[in-house]
Amino acid sequence: MRLLSRVAERLYWMARYLERAEDTARLLRSYTHLIMDIPAGSEPGWDVLLQTLDAQHSFGEHYRVANETNVLKFLIADHSNASSIAQSIRAARENVRTTRDVLPSEVWEHVNELYLYTEKHAANSVGRRNRHDFFDQLIGRCQMINGLMTSTLCRDHAYRFVKIGHLLERADMTTRVLDAGIGALMNEERNPSTTDPLVWASVLSSLSAMETYRRTVGPMVEGAEAVDFIFRDPTLPRSLRFCLGGIREELVPMRNNRNALRVINRSRRSLSRFDPQAAGRRDMHRFIDRFQANLLALGEEINVAWFLTDQA
């Protein structure tokens, strides 16, 4: 089936924004839990979230103090933050609105409902009391939309770009979830042995990977093992390896895919060479930075090869 470049681009961004909203909710949910678990006085700051989401700069333009209320307001409900949950959902909806022709009508209906829900509840879900419910709803609704698309879309170009959008954003967000964990640990130097497992358990649970980790690796959560699992487990749908593999699978049958595949292969190689056991926290942080740069480059190659309207 033929697919217009413009429509492909909108589908891809719809998927990225949905994934971004869901993963941000996952990250904030587990970070909130983590902070409640760490003894008062030694808990990491909320500014860690801004760093891992590369949002310090735009946050600074609107707020002075990076306290819990401000940071969460900015990440959940603030429409001036292009990556806030509310803004991501709004952007996803705008992209579906203009691609309704290639999607089953239920997709539009559910995305529209999700948008109405977010508009209504985001602002009053900043406080701890409502926050959890909001995240659960949001994640659940995003999952439903994903499930709907997985079970109804023909496996043609439209599906392909939805899938690539999801996986690319997910890989990026997975690195950020990890980075938040590492950031939390770096802030906390006094008592690493008691805090460590809590942080890694929080990271795993935000990726819905805790149970699988226990059954695959073991009940004790340990830093290097957890990182290895999240980076390289071939079966975990939120592992970096899984996401890259999925994107690659969709790129292979495409025309004009050389440059994008080159970036994918480069990322895959560097991922398999990386050794979490030997790496310190700073090495991990540096690796994550490099990995994110690769994903950015991949996004750019996709943009050039299939979206840019300059084929003439």
């Binding site: 033929r2 697919l3 217009l4 470049s5 413009r6 492909a8 170009h157 770009f161 495409m254 025309r255 004009n256 299939w306 309207t309 084929q311 003439a312």
Partner: peptide, 10 residues
């Protein structure tokens, strides 16, 4: 006249 698709101009 051509349209821009992901498979190239059509």
């Amino acid at each position: 006249l051509y349209m821009r698709t992901v498979d190239g101009p059509e």
